[in-house]
Design a protein around this nucleic acid. Sequence first.
DNA 1: GACAATGCTGCAACCGTTTGCATTAATGGC
DNA 2: GCCATTAATGCAAACGGTTGCAGCATTGTC
Lengths: 368, 368
Amino acid sequence: MPVTIRDVARASGVHISTVSRTFSAPHLVNPDTRVRVLTCAEDLGYRPNRAARALITGRTHNLGLIIADIANPYFPPLIKAAESQARRRDYHVFVADTNEDPTAEEELVHALAKQVDGVLLCSPRMSNSLIEQLSREVPLVVVNRQVTGLPCVLMDVGQGARSAIEHLVGLGHRDIALLGGPRNSWTNREMRRAAGTAARAGGAELTVLGPNAPTEVGGAAVAEQVRRSGVSAVLAYNDLMAIGLVERLDALGVRVPQEVSVVGVDDITLSRLTRPKLTTVATPTGAAGRTAVDMLLQQDVESPRGARGPGSGPALGVRRTTARVMLQTDLVIRDSTGPGPYARPAPSPAAPHGPDPHCPAGPRIPTG
Amino acid sequence: MPVTIRDVARASGVHISTVSRTFSAPHLVNPDTRVRVLTCAEDLGYRPNRAARALITGRTHNLGLIIADIANPYFPPLIKAAESQARRRDYHVFVADTNEDPTAEEELVHALAKQVDGVLLCSPRMSNSLIEQLSREVPLVVVNRQVTGLPCVLMDVGQGARSAIEHLVGLGHRDIALLGGPRNSWTNREMRRAAGTAARAGGAELTVLGPNAPTEVGGAAVAEQVRRSGVSAVLAYNDLMAIGLVERLDALGVRVPQEVSVVGVDDITLSRLTRPKLTTVATPTGAAGRTAVDMLLQQDVESPRGARGPGSGPALGVRRTTARVMLQTDLVIRDSTGPGPYARPAPSPAAPHGPDPHCPAGPRIPTG
DNA sequence: GACAATGCTGCAACCGTTTGCATTAATGGC
DNA sequence: GCCATTAATGCAAACGGTTGCAGCATTGTC
């Protein structure tokens, strides 16, 4: 029933190779023939079978995008940016959700491997060694994880965490909790490391609570623990957890930011809509999506899988781009952070540490 | 570089057809041979090329899922449900986002057509006739839209809107606004129709404002208009708009629900986390995803595209399932609705209209 | 008028699988 | 000991395209 290249060839009285060329190399076919073929194709509603084409060209013009959790509002901007960037280069993006499950991740890479020209692995939860192994099956670009030998797009959450801690210390907080995220998250490790050093430098005590699920529920679940721990400020793994925490603290009668200050990470749309509006570390998710697609396509164009040309043997894998891009994060100060127990009565004009939350330049402060 | 069936055949000293059978019809090959082939395959890291297989079997074991906007938290539960249901049937789901753009929808169906066994079209924005036309290219199941001749999964937003209006009328509201959604949305039309009749029946005046973008921004944008219109209650196209509206009303100094009551639709997670918590019509998105996948697979198993068997000619398209499933919605009463200007001083024990918001059975009321 | 250059088209091999059919060897029945 | 089964494997044709190469006119040049 579906119309193939042969149907078009028959209808227009030419060989299938001429039809093929009409679409993939129009300059090689006589203008008259071309229009004849095109009209027939149009009439019959012919559309080249991309899978069949990929079989011989080795390029599907599809990209895979594997993410931990679609329900996390952190990802949609990344997805949309990746999609529009891909479309601009005449590629389509297939998104798949793994439910934060490493096994699902692996299975999905396998399933996608032959149907796409490359895969974007966002916030993967599997081990680095497995990722490296999978990268031999299909070109990979990793987002939010550093894997040696593979192109990576990272957000500087280290600087972000540091800025957040400095901000809190500057407000007079000395006892700060870090709400950890998923166990296998690179971001989580980075934040923990950076927050630790920043706290030590600022003379504050950092308590790590976690790991936790990176969701509202995960944040809400530690509210009781936060209250008992006696800290006056919290840096959460992401906005979702921060929001869940604030909500639950409120239910427990703990006021934010009067009694406890809370900082999130990501600056999802939602963080502007809750009350109090969330102070957070903005991560450039859109830029990450675009950059990742670019890196994938660049690496990919250099070495198409099905290449039969001369240099295809030894050159493969040699010119592999292994760039590592680090994107800058910004601290966005809103209403969920306020003076802590050690706050100086009046703000000094030149604060010795960290960005001054009352600085006239506006609330958006680059952390890089 | 990628290892093919030929490599495995060579390594294990058998013909490629034997290798093929080892995977797709193991009972046809000698146990000894089988283990030999399997070990070789394992050693070489062989994985069948699904695209090549699909070329001849006509089944890709992939499903496409096209949705209007990934960023809308309404969809993730649907996506996840569809994915897990598909996985249970050994299918993979590729998700694609159209940014509410009808042209992108069409293009995506074309791109997916040959790479999947069927497509789920969620809340499409294109015309019914175009959908019907596309359905000749690939099996389609439509969600949130009624298209004659095609299998559809619908949520009973009509009943939902009616319940919401009855709830508001019961609270003493007589001037109600309906915040319309996107122009080409079936849901939008249904809500408008049902809300209209319900309002008339309850002796209330219904003002329709819209169409609007179905987002927080869209909701916020009409806040001023809502205030000027003098209505005491609003039914929004979805929770996102309701939340945007509430937020903006608050900024304008209009208190919810004291001065204006607001009802949303969808019951997204977020609606429980804003203040006030949102009264809303819960839609069974997970069930919709599961059902849609089931319908697609059922229709699909009956008539694989590449079928070369006897009845493949005339039977095709005859047994097409055109079921229409209508899923029930629930009114969930929370804190964003309260007594209106015409409220009776004390709630009568037996309210003559609509569900009593204080009924002891709990806040979840089936509208079907 | 012979010859080379050029433009267009057809031929056929190939991509990685599946599958109906033929072939072969082993088994069982008589 | 012969023939009919049966089990296991190989052969080759598909699936829907792409592409290097060859063929054939046509044109231009001398």
